[in-house]
Simulated assay, not measured.
Amino acid sequence: MKVGEFEAPAAPHGAAGGLIDGIGRRFEYLRLSVTDVCNFRCTYCLPDGYKKPCNRPSELSVDEVRRVVTAFAKLGLWKVRLTGGEPTLRRDFEEIARTVAQVPGIRRVAMTTNGYRLAERTVQWRAAGISAINISVDSLDPARFAEITGHDRLKQVFSGIDAAQGAGFDSIKLNAVLMRGVNDTELEAMIDFVSSRDLSLRFIEVMRTNDNAEFFAKRHVAGQSVIDRLQVLGWSRLPRQPGAGPAVEFGHQQAKGRIGIIAPYSKDFCATCNRLRMSSLGKLHLCLFGDAGIDLRPLLQSDDAQAELVERVRKLTSTKAPAHRLHQGNSGATPHLASIGG
């Protein structure tokens, strides 16, 4: 079995056919934000850095995380991705990862990181039960990387990638937000980079949020243009893997790695949606670009509320909208991507 490929487990006993919305989409993947704090200042997300809100509630505790993941596992979800902000800023991040990995029914624990602690902690993260890791690498050029992220840490991130490859993760993916006039000239260099390495690289379209309309208009690169270039270079579309995220993946006979495209502005992007989101404050988001999150935190205070929590999630999921409204210029209530983990 190749890196990143795996067989999906059967739905656990008690999942009652799994979690399905009103148009028949089945959900098996939970994106769980453990913090909205980030130490980077990426131009497409937090260009002015993180600003702590006044009277900000506390983030979910480890016990609250266990309860919410247990509820989703009872509904048939078997994959959890720990996100942020930068999730590893939580001092108890490894305890969270270990707790999630031990929940009955959870088969895969993934994480997304900016990589600043990757070289230092990757062995511990793997030992805590994380089996898949996504790392943000928006440029292969150190100066440009620093310009995009606000930190001159590309060499440090590359050291972390090497460490992760030695730590035995099932899947290692690099995320790059492609931006017109910023890093789009690196497209072919990035393709060459992943061709010689056993990694997956995903190009992500800039997404409009409530605070970046001008940036979006100036920097957006359509995902289809990347797909067109890949096909010219001989890359072909690969079958969708069980539990996969939103990327459409491509492979090449002479390449060691794979390339994915996350293009939320493409036709029928939402048709294969299989994921739900929980914020670090305990709100369920049925869509990244939905109108608002639904507060489930009152049901996370005791194990005795599990049955009520499960039923609440089931009913809310049935109301999930068929698609986002990005094409109408409506990004819902999402202020920026760090707020609920992208």
Rank of each mutant, 00 (worst) to 15 (best):
M1T: 15
G4R: 07
F6M: 15
H13W: 14
G14D: 15
A15S: 15
G24V: 08
R25Q: 04
E28L: 11
L30Y: 14
S33K: 11
D36Y: 10
V37T: 10
N39W: 00
F40W: 10
Y44F: 13
D48G: 15
Y50L: 10
K51N: 14
K51C: 13
L60D: 12
L60T: 07
R67T: 13
V69N: 13
K74I: 04
L77C: 14
W78G: 06
W78N: 11
V80L: 07
R81E: 09
G85M: 02
G85H: 01
P87D: 00
P87G: 06
T88E: 08
L89P: 07
D92A: 01
E94F: 11
E95A: 03
I96F: 03
V103M: 00
P104D: 13
I106L: 12
T112I: 11
T112M: 05
G115I: 10
L118H: 06
A119Q: 01
R121F: 01
V123A: 14
V123G: 08
I130L: 04
S131P: 01
I133T: 08
N134V: 05
I135M: 09
S139M: 13
D141I: 12
F145L: 01
F145G: 00
E147F: 12
T149R: 02
G150N: 00
G150K: 01
H151K: 13
D152E: 00
Q156K: 09
A164N: 05
A164Q: 10
Q165T: 10
G166V: 05
G168P: 06
F169Q: 03
K173M: 03
K173L: 03
L174F: 07
A176F: 03
M179D: 00
R180C: 11
D184I: 03
V194L: 02
R197M: 09
R197S: 08
V206M: 15
D211W: 06
F215K: 00
R219C: 15
R219H: 15
H220R: 02
A222H: 11
Q224H: 00
V232S: 08
V232Y: 12
G234A: 09
W235K: 03
S236E: 14
S236P: 02
L238F: 07
R240K: 11
Q241N: 07
Q241R: 12
G243W: 02
P246T: 03
A247N: 07
E249N: 05
G251S: 10
G251Q: 09
H252F: 00
G257N: 03
I262L: 12
K267L: 13
D268K: 07
F269I: 07
F269C: 10
C270S: 11
S280I: 02
L281E: 13
L281R: 09
L286P: 07
C287H: 04
G290Q: 00
G290C: 08
G290D: 00
G293L: 01
I294G: 02
R297Q: 08
D303H: 11
D303F: 09
A307K: 01
E308H: 05
E311N: 12
P322I: 06
R325S: 07
G329F: 00
S331V: 04
A333F: 10
H336P: 09
L337Y: 11
L337S: 10
I340C: 09
